[in-house]
Structures are given as structure tokens and as C-alpha cells.
């Protein structure tokens, strides 16, 4: 355990005097954990998030922080800070500027990859120290309950009858919804009419009000409307079907002959030049988190998946994700 560890962060600085004066307390703190050999951050940890409080990645990371603390996987107090602005670039820059910092990690969400692409800024993901991608979300294609199409194939045929006759509601240009619409167009050859709204909530409202024909939804948001017969699910865009009774009858797009596999994924990354020992610390913590019952319950409850891509593969995984997004956004004409 490196007791004199580089105290660079402003957060630790506040605690420096305190911690130096109580070396024994710190030794105990380190020894009490299962990773006494490795290095652990001192003092409170910040998980930086780029959405305003309440957004999906924010809710997820608050859950992560809560479970990590409650299950005593990490004993340092973890706070989620929302550094909003610049479509996640303010949050990303905050962490990018904390080279070698031990107490800050960044939430990885899709805008970390896509914003640099759509705004023509230099890439961000490859400058960070990848830790883990451990949350995945599926996406569903839904249409109005009274739509004549019963399968995804019929829906595509319907869309092909007249170009741009099918209206799709989704979030802002370049969002997941937009990219999925692009994928559907590419795989089917049909041309759709994508109407961007101010976020997923507004898009869902437009759909429920009957103003558009199609919408892309994550399972958790689709469920209440399925129950109430307000939407009809045509396809799930994952490799395999979900197993819950609510969704097991929704066929994948692949089964129906359309090679569309797309989803959302979230994870964590450290600032540039993060100590490999610390990466290991986080890697262990995330693996332990994924094994807890509390986390499994969260994943089930929010209809997510949690396949841990650990630190050794995270870099490659993120590069792969980046290339996929880049290719798709180029097709959509949104890449700069």
C-alpha cells in the first residue's frame, strides 16, 4: 500500500493534513479490505456524469455508488457529480484535465463516443484510461397498436410503399434513436421520416398522442405501454431474445431476416495516465459489484444486461464501439 500516494486531487488535498496525522487509521482502512496488496484511492471518490440528475446514466451510477458503498466493496464515500453541458464534453474535459488523479472516474455513455464525431472534435475515449463497460441496454422497435404491420417484415414493406411515409419519433439528431432509425433504413432499404424531439420523454409523448408511427424504446420504458396496449412491439435489436415473460415473445430483428443489432452500453473510465494499480482496484470492485444480489436485482428491475467487459478488454471494446458509431454516423451524414 502506497501511503505517501500522490495527493494531487483537490478533493484529497482537503483531507491531506488529516490523513497524514492518522497514518494508523489509514493502514487499518487499507488492511480491512480484501485488496490490501493493491493500491486504493484515499478520500472521497467522484463519479463524473454528463447528464443532469435523473437521466438514465445518472440513475445507474447513483445505484452503482450506493451498492459499492453499502456492500463495503469501496469504503471511500462515492459521490456522483453532474457536470452538464456540451453534450457530455464538459464532463469529459473535466476528467481529461485530471491526469493521474486517483479520486475521479468518468461515466462512459454514448455521447462520449458520438459528440466528438458529430462536432468534429478530437476523440475522447482513447485518451481516457478504460476501466470497465458493465451495463448494457436493449432496444425495441415499437409501432402504434393499430398499425397494419404485425411483424417487422410487414412494417418494412409498409414503409417501402411510399418513401418517408413512416414517421419515427426520437431524441435529438445523432441520438441512439436516430442511429437505430439509420440502421433500419440501411438494413431494409426503406426511407423513413425521422422527427427529433427534445429527448426521449417528449418523443414518447408524441408517439402516445398518435402523431408518429414508430418509436425506439428500451424495455423498461416500453413495458407499461405494452401492458396498457398502447404500443405493439415488432422487434428487439439484440443478438438473442430477452428471457423475461414480458419480452420473451418479441423476436429479434435478426430472426426476422434483418441484421440489426444495436444497444446502449455504460461503464467507467479513469483520467489519462491512471495508475494501473488503481485500474485493478476499480476492475476488482466492478467484478464484485456485478456479483452482488443488489446489483443483479437492479439489472433485472430495469431490464438491462450486465456483462462485465473488464479492464484488459475495455480499451479494445471501446475502440470497436467507436468505430461502429463512426461508421453509422457517417452513413447518416452526421459525422464531421
Amino acid at each position: 500500500m502506497n501511503m505517501t500516494g500522490k495527493v494531487k486531487s483537490s478533493l484529497t488535498r482537503r483531507l491531506m493534513l488529516f490523513s497524514l496525522s492518522s497514518v494508523s487509521a489509514l493502514l487499518m482502512l487499507g488492511a480491512g479490505e480484501g485488496y490490501a496488496q493493491g493500491k486504493a484511492p484515499q478520500g472521497p471518490i467522484e463519479i463524473t456524469s454528463g447528464t443532469s440528475p435523473g437521466g438514465t446514466p445518472d440513475v445507474l451510477m447513483r445505484r452503482v455508488a450506493k451498492i459499492l458503498n453499502e456492500e463495503k466493496i469501496i469504503t471511500n464515500p462515492i459521490v456522483v457529480q453532474n457536470r452538464t453541458g456540451g453534450s457530455w464534453m464538459v464532463a469529459a474535459n473535466w476528467v481529461l484535465n485530471k491526469k493521474g488523479d486517483e479520486n475521479t472516474v468518468l461515466t462512459i455513455a454514448q455521447p462520449i463516443l458520438t459528440t466528438p464525431i458529430t462536432t468534429g472534435q478530437p476523440t475522447v475515449y482513447d485518451k481516457l484510461t478504460p476501466i470497465s463497460m458493465f451495463i448494457q441496454g436493449d432496444l425495441l422497435i415499437a409501432v402504434q397498436p393499430n398499425s397494419p404491420a404485425k411483424t417487422f417484415k410487414e412494417f418494412v414493406d409498409l414503409a417501402k410503399q411510399r418513401e418517408r411515409s413512416i414517421k419515427v419519433a426520437g431524441a435529438q439528431a445523432g441520438s441512439t434513436d436516430h442511429m437505430v432509425t439509420g440502421l433500419v433504413e440501411k438494413a431494409s432499404g426503406a426511407k423513413l421520416n425521422y422527427v427529433p424531439f427534445d429527448g426521449g420523454g417528449a418523443a414518447a409523448t408524441a408517439f402516445l398522442g398518435g402523431n408518429v408511427d414508430m418509436i425506439v424504446l428500451p424495455p423498461s420504458e416500453a413495458l407499461p405501454h405494452v401492458k396498457n396496449n398502447k404500443i405493439k412491439l415488432l422487434a428487439i435489436l439484440s443478438e438473442s431474445r430477452r428471457t423475461e415473460p414480458e419480452f420473451k415473445d418479441v423476436p429479434t430483428a435478426k430472426e426476422q431476416g434483418f441484421d440489426i443489432v444495436w444497444g446502449q452500453s455504460w461503464g467507467l473510465a479513469g483520467p489519462p495516465g491512471m495508475d494501473p494499480e488503481l485500474v485493478k482496484f476499480w476492475d476488482n470492485a466492478i467484478q464484485k459489484l456485478a456479483a452482488t444480489d443488489a446489483w443483479k436485482a437492479t439489472v433485472k428491475e430495469m431490464f438491462l444486461r450486465s456483462q462485465v467487459v473488464n479492464a484488459s478488454q475495455a480499451k479494445e471494446h471501446m475502440a470497436q464501439l467507436h468505430d461502429q458509431h463512426l461508421a453509422l454516423l457517417r452513413d447518416l451524414g452526421l459525422a464531421k
Partner: peptide
Amino acid sequence: LGIAFPTGLLGI
């Protein structure tokens, strides 16, 4: 509200 202010050299 647990807001992190920039703390600067003095740490306050």
C-alpha cells in the same frame, strides 16, 4: 446538497 466547489491551493 453535496456540491463540489473548486477548492484551490488552500483546500477550502
